[in-house]
Amino acid sequence: MSTSAQRPYRVLVSKIGLDGHDRGSRIVAAYLRDAGMEVIYTAPWQEVQALVRMASDEDVDLIGISSLATDHLLLPKLLEALRAADLGDLPVVVGGIVPDEDEQALIEAGVRRVFHPGSSRDEIVSTVAALAAEARIQRKTESF
């Protein structure tokens, strides 16, 4: 019988906002699957509250958001909503076109990592795995 420590990492991959291109998130989803993770893949145009609900119900270890236009500006709202739902320890990463001046603000708001176009598969997979592992340990030792 497998133990919970060996459970594959579960990652929610999605997009928020109005930009409907999901090619980037499909590619990343495939990377993570090929690295042995379970990727919960959602339709684009998710509302912030819907993402929080899915992350909670699916008991994921990390949320990855793909952003092409200005959707990344919604991320601070997502982080706030996660904290309000007592999911503040869930790492959030973003991938896509994020201008440098916005990146700093995102990191300050709590986004753990911004992947720019051209990020390698290895970089994405190893960062996601490390953050997911950290989140699991955190939740394991968290007390009531």
Binding site: A29, R33, A35, E38, I40, Y41, Q46, R53, M54
Partner: peptide, 21 residues
């Protein structure tokens, strides 16, 4: 799940988004 890597893409929710909240 992929029998090789153990990973999976779980995409059924895509068709059930109406009820998420």
């Amino acid at each position: 799940s992929s029998p090789v890597t153990g990973g999976a893409i779980l995409g059924d929710r895509v068709r059930m988004t109406q009820h998420v909240e």
